[in-house]
Structure formats: C-alpha cells, structure tokens
C-alpha cells in the first residue's frame, strides 16, 4: 500500500500540475498546428499518447542496457519505430484522420514531450511508474489539445465536432482557425494557467527543461535552460 500513493501521483501530475503543454510548454508545434478542429486535436492527442506510453515502457525496460553515450539516438530510434507503427495503424483504420494530420503524424518523432519524458523519467524509473507517467502526460497533452481545438473550432468555424453551434455558426470568426488564432489562443491559455497556478513568471520560460539537448543549449542561452 505504501507504494500505491506515489504511483497515482505519477499518473495525475501530468494531467494538471505538470501539464506538458500549458505548464511545461513542450510540444508546441503540434499544439498549434492540429488544433483547428476538435477531431484532429483528439486524434493527435491519442496518437501521441500511444507512442508516449509504449516508448516509455520500452525505454524504461532497456534503461540498464542502453549505454549512456548513445542513449539519445537509441531513444529516437525506439520512438520512431512506435511512430511508424501508429502511422500505419492510422492509415489503415482512420484514413480521414491521416489526411487531417498529414505530415504532423510522423512529426510526433520530434515532439519534445516524448523525448523529454524518455530522458527525464523513463530512463531513471521502473516500467510501471514510467507507463503511468506516459499515460498521465499523454492525457494531459490530449486534454490541452482538446481544449484548444474546442475553442478554435467553436469560435472559428461555429461548429463543435461537426455540430452546429447556434449564433456563431452563421458568423464564425475565421481568424481563430487561421495561424494567428492559434498563437493567440495558446498565449491566452498559458496566461490563464499562469494565473491559476499563481506563479511568478520568469521572463524566459520556453520548454527547455525537457529538451535532451539542454546541456548544449545552455551555451546558447545562458542559464535559461538549466531547468
């Protein structure tokens, strides 16, 4: 029983407290790109979650086998393998989702959340906590995408999962679906998350904490990246 509480924490921390998108600000590219609609946002979230859970499990199981020096290429290979599997599954069973996500589906490989969790969590923990961590982070990612997708689709297209929303659907605010709307909604959501967390914001808070290259990166940006 003593073990159980931390395990649940590994799961829940990713959803709210350390939400990868809104608090750690990782994986911004897909967040902005696929949230023009709820269905593509959900599809992206689920695909990334599957990759995250599987890669976390395998990397954690192999953590004592992979030599430290080549760990990043090894992680990338493992992640790329799972992304390829997910890509083939989506192509076979959900071709419309494949069209909606386009090139962003293979780009899950370079999503900082996945490599970041591999480096920061799975490489140091046992399989079960790693899987829970991956699941929690994945659900947090999906939830953030779902929220952004909902806001942008309702305001920008006047629909929600294809359902017409009265009043707005006759006069949608098109710019919310266009790229500037993505930046704007994302900025506002982070501002709200900051307000709710009541944290004093450091001026430079881009998602470098999970970046596997942060040791090299710190040369570029001084101490900003030292977590």
């Amino acid at each position: 029983m003593a073990e159980k509480k931390p395990l649940i924490k590994e799961f829940t921390k990713g959803i709210v407290k350390e939400n990868p998108v809104l608090c750690l600000v990782l994986g911004t590219c897909p967040t902005l790109a696929v949230t023009t609609g709820v269905s593509s946002a959900l599809g992206m979230g689920v695909a990334a979650t599957v990759v995250l859970v599987c890669s976390n499990a395998v990397i954690s199981a192999l953590r004592k086998v992979i030599p430290g020096k080549v760990r990043i290429p090894a992680y990338i290979t493992i992640i790329a393998a799972f992304v390829t599997i997910v890509q083939m599954l989506v192509k076979a069973y959900a071709p419309s989702l494949n069209d909606a996500l386009g090139v962003y589906l293979p780009l899950i490989v370079v999503n900082c959340i996945i490599l970041g969790r591999a480096e920061m969590f799975a490489s140091k923990n046992k399989v079960l906590p790693s899987v829970l961590d991956g699941l929690g982070m994945g659900i947090g990612f999906t939830a953030a995408l779902f929220l952004m997708g909902s806001i942008r689709e309702i305001l920008g297209a006047g629909t929600w999962l294809g359902l017409n929303i009265p009043i707005i659907s006759s006069n949608p605010i098109l710019i919310f679906i266009l790229p500037p709307g993505g930046f704007f909604v994302f900025g506002m959501l982070i501002a709200i998350a900051n307000k709710l967390n009541n944290k004093t914001v450091q001026p430079e808070e881009v998602g470098c904490a999970g970046c596997p290259m942060s040791d090299k990166c710190s040369k570029v940006k001084g101490e900003e990246c030292a977590e």
Binding site: F183, G187, A191, N194, V201, E205
Partner: peptide, 14 residues
C-alpha cells in the same frame, strides 16, 4: 503580470 513572458510573446507572434 499573468501575460508576462511566454503569453505576451505568443500574442505578439499572433
């Protein structure tokens, strides 16, 4: 205060 840092940067990017 809440907009300092990243949020205002994103709004500027918009």
């Amino acid at each position: 205060k809440s907009l300092q840092g990243l949020p205002i940067t994103l709004v500027a990017a918009a």
